[in-house]
Design a protein around this nucleic acid. Structure first.
Length: 320
DNA sequence: AACCAGGCTGCTA
DNA sequence: TAGCAGCATGGT
């Protein structure tokens, strides 16, 4: 573990209050649980967690520490913290399981990042300033599992988000694990081992293109045999090295690499410059009559140095 | 009913 | 190095 990772682990341990059947995560810096919930409820078709807008909570069957636990996640006092309630018995006598699940949620909600520095930068930015007020306390909701992050990005290439969610649902419901609770079915994302054992013909019926099927299979094979791991990517020296490593894989281009760096590896300078959504957000906010080019976007982003990932997430939030 | 969608590969010049 | 066709299908 390097210095930054050690600091992050210490921050988590400070923020996690285990109370047995329930627990609380206290984030660093500005945070509003409702901002996270609003983002997470953007698709009715989400299959990996269930957002209950009426009751202000999200439920997920979390895979952590070698076990799976069903967790209810809701806001704490004044919307400022995240509370966890462990619903099934797996976690009840097991502090290690609770710790692992809490660590997952901490990472998922990016609770270790202090937004103050980003907000300070945004204050003098024409584009970001208003957004940080509009979405105050919003964290970059992530995808802690590397295989899930890569697959989601690959599935979502060059199609609209609604269809991407449909593809993900078919993929998960075909090859993931499930459990039923309170009249609802909860799913975990398929493992690389499971997917690596498939062929293109198993995936095209889900309406993946044959190319996407190949990309997903290749990614699964690399993760199943250990050539590709999150730990290794995190150990690399800089973002460029990570991008090189990821784009060496067929089907993973700069957009997918940066998407994963942003939502899974949490590299603050990750920036999917060619992203259509990003272009549309900027076009919309500036009232332009055509989309900015990637070069124009890069010019804009020059002022966001070190915070490109958060800038991107806040810009995306405008659209959905 | 065109046109677009949170791109990538592989081929040209 | 830069440009571009092809992919291939659902949403709006």
């Amino acid at each position: 573990m390097n210095e930054a990772q050690l600091a992050a682990e210490l921050a988590f341990q400070e923020g996690w209050k285990d109370g047995g059947l329930e627990g609380e995560l206290v984030p660093r810096g500005p945070f509003r649980f409702s901002a996270a919930l609003a983002y997470m409820g953007r698709s009715e078709n989400e299959c990996l967690f269930y957002v209950d807008q009426d009751q202000d909570r999200v439920c997920k069957w979390i895979e952590a520490g070698g076990e799976r636990v069903l967790v209810e996640i809701f806001g704490g006092p004044e919307d400022r913290t995240v509370r966890l309630r462990f619903l099934d018995e797996a976690a009840h006598g097991n502090p290690q399981t609770r710790l692992a699940a809490a660590r997952y949620v901490w990472e998922w909600f990016d609770l270790g990042t202090d937004l103050d520095a980003f907000y300070q930068l945004a204050e003098s930015d024409l584009l970001l300033g208003p957004l940080t007020q509009r979405f105050y306390g919003l964290r970059c909701i992530g995808i802690p599992d590397l295989f899930e992050a890569l697959c989601w990005a690959i599935l979502g290439q060059q199609i609209n988000l609604a269809f991407a969610y449909t593809l993900k649902r078919r993929f998960v419901e075909s090859y993931g694990a499930s459990m039923a609770w309170d009249g609802r079915t909860y799913w975990t994302f398929p493992t690389p081992e499971t997917i690596a054992g498939l062929s293109v013909a198993d995936l095209t019926p889900l309406q993946l293109t044959s190319k996407k099927a190949e990309y997903v299979l290749e990614t699964a094979a690399r993760m199943a045999d250990g050539r590709l791991t999150k730990e290794h990517l995190l150990s690399l020296a800089d973002a460029q090295a990570v991008e090189r490593e990821l784009t060496a894989i067929r089907g993973i281009g700069p957009w997918t690499a940066h998407y994963v760096m942003m939502r899974c590896l949490r590299l603050p300078s990750a920036f999917p410059a060619g992203d259509v959504g990003l272009q549309n957000a900027v076009k919309h906010l500036f009232g332009m009559d055509s989309k900015p080019t990637p070069v124009e976007l890069q010019r804009l982003a020059a002022g966001w140095s070190g915070f490109e990932a958060y800038a991107t997430f806040y810009l995306w939030r405008v659209l959905y």
